[in-house]
């Protein structure tokens, strides 16, 4: 892929929908399946990923000319690990309230596929500004995916949202078990694919009509 021609707005929108990390790129499935059992988890992990993704993308696109191509993957891992550690320490020192809620999420991120992949596919070939917006798009896209999954699973599993009871009963306890993560990801992925097919069909019809 050469230097991107997309506008910044397009980059963010792509990350949210047509290149959504969870439902379209199928990256970082472990957290998507394991941790999406409530909306709050989704939001917190989403924020953590957003920050690490943006910082790492910017760092790599700044350093891309100095990285030997054969050691790029270890370098990405180093950069991600550094940012994760820095964010973790800074939160613990200056924002203890946020650290209490987000600490365990931040530490999980080092091994996330989505971040390494975006560095490999995008940040190492593009200048800083598009890389920044790509990071923002991917981060919010990931958060959007996690929140969607969390909403479905928490509502069906516990009958509430964000810890508040809404309907008073627990319809299907099955949905908060890890296993249900697979089903939910699968079904939402199917919806995304279906929408894409319909969208393409409409587009083709329109071009024929013209």
């Amino acid at each position: 892929m050469a230097v991107t021609k997309k506008t910044n707005k397009q980059l963010v929108l792509d990350g949210l929908l047509s290149e959504n990390p969870i439902f379209r790129l199928a990256l970082s499935m472990c957290p998507a399946v394991g941790i999406s059992s409530s909306v709050m988890n989704g939001i917190l992990l989403g924020i953590a990923v957003l920050f690490v993704q943006v910082f790492s993308s910017c760092t790599i696109s700044l350093l891309k000319d100095y990285i030997h191509p054969r050691i790029r993957i270890p370098t990405y891992t180093l950069v991600i690990a550094t940012w994760v550690t820095v964010i973790d320490l800074v939160l613990a020192a200056y924002v203890p309230v946020a650290y209490k809620a987000m600490g365990i999420f931040v530490k999980l991120i080092v091994a996330f596929a989505i971040i390494t992949m975006r560095l490999e596919v995008f940040a190492c070939k593009n200048p800083v500004v598009p890389s920044f917006w790509d990071g923002v798009g991917m981060g919010t896209g990931f958060m959007f995916g996690m929140v969607t999954l969390g909403t479905v699973r928490e509502f069906l599993g516990t009958g509430g949202l964000l810890g508040h009871d809404l309907i008073g009963t627990r319809p299907l306890l099955f949905f908060i078990l890890p296993l249900a993560g697979f089903f939910c990801v699968g079904f939402i992925m199917a919806i995304f694919n279906y929408v894409e097919i319909v969208y393409k069909r409409m587009k083709r019809k329109r071009s024929i009509a013209q």
């Binding site: 030997h68 050691i71 270890p74 370098t75 180093l78 550690t85 320490l89 613990a92 020192a93 200056y94």
Partner: peptide, 30 residues
């Protein structure tokens, strides 16, 4: 490659170490 990797590790280590020294006191107090 070796030199490149060593330098990246050193830089990463230095950054983490630096942040640790700066934040350590506040972290312990918290």
């Amino acid at each position: 490659i070796t030199i490149g990797l060593v330098i990246s590790c050193l830089v990463a280590g230095a950054v983490m170490g630096g942040v640790f020294t700066v934040t350590d006191k506040a972290k312990k107090r918290n």
